[in-house]
Design a protein around this nucleic acid. Structure first.
Lengths: 323, 323
DNA sequence: TTGTACGCGTTATCAC
DNA sequence: GTGATAACGCGTACAA
């Protein structure tokens, strides 16, 4: 592998001269620079990332940590992050699983975006206290080195509940997310507020886990005890799809007639299931772009405030009016 | 940031002692090792990835390069790669876009898995000739430093065509993939072979691009010239979904009656569209796992042969028998 | 322009 | 056998 030393030798100059020339410093003559560049090119020189990182103490890479690679969930988010980052000359690495976490303390990345509830708050605070810069998308964490870019879960859940109630529903199941999930908690909290301020609404909370299986389990329970039309607020679309699967394959109940589900996230699939799933929408891409922006500000020492991603209601034939 | 030097100072030993102890060398006494480990722990020591990479000339990270983050396409593949890698102590970074390519020559990663037609063959051969190890999933490239793990496109396309023909279809549209795509070419080649050996089949090739828009465009064309029932082999599911969208929203043609589409990939969505899309299935996870295995063998200098991923037919109500 | 110290961990060599 | 010294990998940046 060719290093600046080799180039220096061939060009008959010092390594520092090569380094300056390569980095476009005006300390070096135009001619010398050109000559060195030519030689470097001809020798197929490529700087060694590790050496540069070691000296500069930064890698110009940032990591995004996801719970898993599954689901249709992340495509647009990642695209948003990547675009935001590339504009600033940073590269993105997408990580998942425990092993890759060491990239943070080992300084392989200059900062991280976290969307992975399997991280403990303490672990993240620990990183932050050691000087690592983080943007969290899935929790409320207060530290100068941590910035939050959170969904407006409360608005979303309120929107969903109000929609159901406006359509005349007074029996509402709510399928919860995972225990530790911040988004779940916020959404469920808003659900309870909505119920509290609306007399006459029966509300049943079912356990869930943000995956299809949870939606199916909830559907079974609901179908088993079915007596009259009910609305079902699944705290994400994935579970709503699971509910569709179960109801349509294992019962004679009709979605949009007996059961009126609404989801959260507006994943692509929701547009394709029959009938179209009502849900809460927001821009994944914007979320990602904003997160990357905030992280770069954090890294470059600029002041940052926490940010919020706004949501809207998407109506769907899965929810019909009760007359 | 605490380095081995700090630990050495506190422990009253030389840095080499610390390094040996940390790496579990038997050159150091149990007690000394224990003491050093304790101190390192207490000081929250974490080795600097860049320094280690620099010395060892390897990062224990491997990269997978994707055309984009979109589509439901990659989740399982990535999961497969990750699992295969983690077992061997490697970490995965998922990359997309031109910028991140520099990770290869800059030796930020020890090897790369390529599923991104926007790479040129020459570029990849160039990397290989410089000693970088690659596994390609999307082209036929011969070099000692390159291993191929390819889909059995020919079998898949033959399966699809035979299925259509067996159902009595004699008018078959085929919606192609992008011009440069290896998978497209192989599939289309097999299509032509199938047509050639079956007299009486009318076959029309339509341009495509593996995205939904291409499927919609093809659908428009087919609908405009519709005279009698026809089968449509979309060279991937995404385009077949686009075709569904157009046909169901803009025409009175019925899928499974007038138009009989089949896809390729068996993405999750294909199970949800109505009627279920017939398609060609294969295990994404296995594909990923195999790719990572091959790459690690390549990196560790073991001999490797090219591999093939087998495919099966998934029947669906999108294709009905012509009587 | 150039010589050189530096960033940090690894490992060969050498002395006790 | 134990442990210390120093060279090394590669690029950067300060002092000369």
């Amino acid at each position: 592998m060719v290093s600046i030393k080799d180039i220096a030798k061939k060009a008959g100059v010092a390594v520092s001269t090569v380094s300056y020339a390569l980095n476009g410093s005006d300390k070096i003559t135009e001619e010398t620079t050109a000559r060195i560049l030519a030689i470097a090119n001809e020798m197929n020189y490529v700087p060694h990332a590790a050496a540069r990182s070691l000296k500069k103490q930064q890698s110009h890479m940032i990591g995004i940590f996801l719970t898993d690679f599954g689901g249709h969930f992340y495509g647009d988010l990642l695209q948003g992050v990547k675009e935001g980052l590339n504009r600033k000359g940073f590269d993105l690495v997408v990580c998942s699983g425990r092993q890759s976490r060491r990239m943070i303390p080992e300084r392989m990345i200059d900062g991280a975006i976290i969307l992975d509830e399997t991280f403990g708050d303490e672990e993240l605070l620990e990183y932050a206290s050691r000087g690592h810069k983080l943007v969290v998308l899935d929790r409320d964490l207060d530290h100068p080195n941590i910035n939050q870019v959170l969904l407006d879960n409360k608005a979303g859940a309120s929107l969903a509940m109000e929609y159901l109630i406006d359509q005349g529903h007074d029996k509402i199941y709510v399928v919860n997310g995972p225990k530790g999930s911040f988004d779940s908690k916020q959404r469920m909290h808003a659900v309870k507020q909505a119920v509290d301020r609306t007399p006459g609404v029966t509300f049943v909370e079912l356990p869930g886990n943000f995956d299809k299986a949870a939606g199916e389990a909830a559907a079974r329970r609901i179908a088993d005890e079915y007596t009259r039309p009910a609305a079902v607020f699944c705290l994400n679309d994935e579970m709503a799809i699971g509910l569709y699967d179960y109801v349509q394959n294992n019962t004679s109940l009709i979605i949009g007639e007996h059961l009126h589900p609404i989801g959260f996230d507006n994943i692509e699939l929701s547009r394709y299931v029959q009938p179209r799933l009502a849900t809460i929408d927001y821009s994944m891409r914007k979320w990602g772009a904003l997160a990357s922006e905030q992280l770069i500000k954090l890294i470059s020492g600029q002041p940052v405030d926490h940010e919020r991603i706004y949501v809207t209601l998407v109506q769907g034939e899965s929810v019909k009016t009760i007359v």
